[in-house]
Every structure is written in structure tokens, then in C-alpha cells.
Design a protein around this nucleic acid. Structure first.
Length: 137
DNA sequence: TTGTTGACCTCTT
DNA sequence: CAAGAGGCCAACA
């Protein structure tokens, strides 16, 4: 093996397993979603984060999609989760269409003091809130 | 039960 | 530089 042409997500999987070592209550309520909600709720007002950041914080950056799924339930989750502060890597409101109305997410972000232009967070890079850094697991 | 989809991200060609 | 495919976990049909 001189060169690895394919990815070998061995250590990454282990990392995920390690993260899963968390004290999962005997209930099925514990899930990827719970962690996502917890992180999103800790997002300060006027700040935004990305799915990949949360996924990476949980140790599963490869499973960023699950974060999106978690947000899908965010609308039904309680307490309500500020999913509007969660955008994709490009800072685009990818899930704006899931807030009931395509303008709901924008309105919420604007209320938070976040400017949105063309469905994109203005200064997203500056407003980017990295849980892995702020929370420093 | 299996198969497909999903608010994504990253790598490869 | 741009486009395509792969990959993860979970829920739905």
C-alpha cells in the first residue's frame, strides 16, 4: 500500500463510537438529535453555525446529513430549536423552505440581528459560531 | 423486511 | 475551475 486511493474512515468511525460512549439514558430519546438540539440551543443570538460544524463537534462530520434530519424534527422538538441559526457551509439558508414559509427563517435571523441577503447570511464567516471552538468539548 | 430519501459535506476526476 | 460521486445515520413506504 503505497498510496491510499480510497478513504479509510477507520479512526473516524472510532471517534464516532467514542462520542457515542456518552451516557445514553435507557430511553430512545437519546439520539443524534438530542446532541444537535443541545448545541443549536447554545448558539448565541446574532450568531450562526453550520451543519458540518455541529457534526464535527459531535465527531461525525461525515454525517452532516443527520444534523439536517435532526433539524427536521426541530420543528416538532421542544423546546423549539433555533434552527434558523443553522445554515449550510456556504451560509445559505438551505432549510428556509422547511420553516413553514420560505421567509420565516430570514425573518428570524433578521430578528436576531443577522442580515440575510439573497438567502445568504451576510458576513457568515464572521458570524460563524464554531461549537468545537466555543464549547471546546 | 429491504429500499429509498433526506435542511449536507468532502474528495476525486 | 466545474461537475460528479461517495458516505454517514435515521426515518418513511
Amino acid at each position: 500500500m503505497t498510496k491510499k486511493k480510497a478513504k479509510a474512515p477507520s479512526p473516524e468511525k472510532k471517534a464516532r463510537k467514542a462520542a457515542e460512549e456518552k451516557p445514553r439514558s435507557t430511553t430512545r430519546e437519546y439520539s443524534f438529535f438530542a446532541d444537535v438540539y443541545d448545541v443549536v440551543r447554545q448558539v448565541p443570538r446574532g450568531r450562526v453555525t453550520s451543519y458540518g460544524a455541529i457534526a464535527a463537534y459531535l465527531g461525525t462530520k461525515l454525517s452532516a446529513r443527520m444534523v439536517g434530519w435532526a433539524m427536521n424534527a426541530a420543528g416538532t422538538a421542544k423546546p423549539k430549536v433555533p434552527a434558523q441559526r443553522v445554515v449550510n457551509r456556504n451560509g445559505i439558508l438551505s432549510g428556509k423552505h422547511h420553516f413553514g414559509t420560505p421567509t420565516r427563517m430570514e425573518a428570524l435571523l433578521k430578528k436576531d440581528g443577522v442580515k440575510v441577503k439573497n438567502d445568504t447570511v451576510v458576513g457568515f464567516k464572521e458570524r460563524f459560531w464554531d461549537p468545537s471552538k466555543e464549547l471546546a468539548l
